[in-house]
Simulated assay, not measured.
Amino acid sequence: MSAVWSPHGQTFETGLATGGTGQAMTDSEAIEQDPFEDIAFGTWLIGQHGRDGWIGDLARAAKADRGFPRHGDPDAVRLHLNKMQAESDMFEAVDDAERLWAPF
């Protein structure tokens, strides 16, 4: 297991994304959803990895983090960030991302 650099001084473990299933999940599986199903916040956030700014930084770190709650809600993401001792800017990025995601 290795760590990936974050511009905010936080490191996240890298590894295969499992999406909570125990099986490897591709990037496209992480962001594709049935259009009639709700999009989980964690899944939506990872899909923002091409975005600029704090949300994009958070999304890229989440994408590289094996333990990230891909099917979690915003509170699950905050809990995970708290366990990882993330910087306060990451929590603000979750707040901003939640406001963008909420219409989904």
Rank of each mutant, 00 (worst) to 15 (best):
T43S: 06
W54I: 14
T11N: 01
I39G: 00
H8Y: 10
A62I: 15
T14E: 12
Q10T: 10
A86W: 05
L100D: 15
E29R: 00
Q48H: 07
Q33A: 13
K83N: 15
F36K: 00
E92H: 11
I39D: 00
R99M: 10
L45C: 10
A102Y: 15
Q48I: 11
D52G: 10
H49C: 08
P35H: 06
K63I: 04
R78D: 03
T26P: 05
T14R: 07
R78L: 02
M25P: 14
A61D: 03
M90I: 02
M84W: 04
A64G: 14
N82I: 00
A17I: 04
P35M: 06
T14C: 07
A30E: 15
I31P: 04
L16M: 14
G67L: 08
H8R: 04
D73L: 13
S88N: 02
R70Y: 11
E29F: 02
G72V: 05
T21N: 10
D95K: 03
F41K: 00
L45Q: 07
V77R: 01
W44R: 02
M1V: 11
R99C: 03
P35G: 05
E98V: 12
R99K: 10
E13S: 11
N82L: 05
S28R: 10
A59E: 09
G9N: 07
A102M: 08
P7S: 01
F41C: 03
D95H: 04
D73K: 12
S88H: 09
H80E: 03
A17Y: 03
L58S: 02
D89Y: 15
Q85H: 09
K63W: 10
W101P: 06
R78I: 03
R66N: 13
S2G: 11
K63M: 08
E29T: 02
G22S: 14
V77S: 01
L16K: 13
W101M: 11
W44N: 02
T43I: 04
A59H: 04
L81P: 08
W54T: 15
I46L: 14
G72W: 06
D75R: 05
G56A: 02
F41P: 01
L100N: 11
P35T: 11
A30V: 13
G72D: 07
R60W: 11
W54F: 15
W5R: 00
D34A: 01
L79A: 11
A40Q: 08
G15S: 15
A86Y: 02
L79H: 09
L58E: 06
G15V: 15
G42R: 00
E32Q: 10
T18N: 02
G67H: 11
W101F: 15
L58V: 04
G19K: 05
D96T: 03
P69H: 06
G9Q: 07
Q10N: 10
P35W: 07
G56W: 04
A86P: 00
P74W: 05
V77I: 12
